[in-house]
């Protein structure tokens, strides 16, 4: 360390600022709590459309925090946010359409 402080203007041995990790740990706690809640629901509820809706909702919450905070998308410009989110909305459309299609195949069998 003494060697480092003797060269204050050396770019190789610059001062390292304090870490800013508060938001990261907050996101981690949210993700853990949501996952724990999913486990609880998995065991206390019987299969029903409501249960599925809760799981899908929780998943979207988790996806929001991972993409928004960890991948930093929340803090990017609007045009980038929409270039990523808009295609995903069409994927949801495809998902719903093909789930209905699957139900129809079941009825015809």
């Amino acid at each position: 360390m003494a060697e480092h402080t003797s060269h204050p203007h050396d770019s190789e041995h610059h001062e390292i600022p304090e870490p800013q990790t508060k938001a990261i740990w907050r996101t981690f706690i949210i993700l853990s709590v949501v996952t724990g809640f999913e486990f609880l629901i998995a065991f206390i509820m019987n299969a029903s459309p409501l249960k599925t809706a809760i799981f899908v909702g929780m998943t979207i919450v988790k996806a929001f925090y991972i993409v928004g905070e960890f991948m930093h998308l929340k803090h990017e410009v609007k045009s980038l946010i929409w270039s990523i989110v808009l295609p995903c909305i069409f994927v949801v459309w495809l998902l719903v359409a093909l789930l209905m299609e699957g139900g129809s195949i079941f009825m015809l069998r």
Partner: peptide, 12 residues
Amino acid sequence: LVTYGLIRFSYP
């Protein structure tokens, strides 16, 4: 995943 959903819903 969509394929999974489709095939799952086509089974009892």
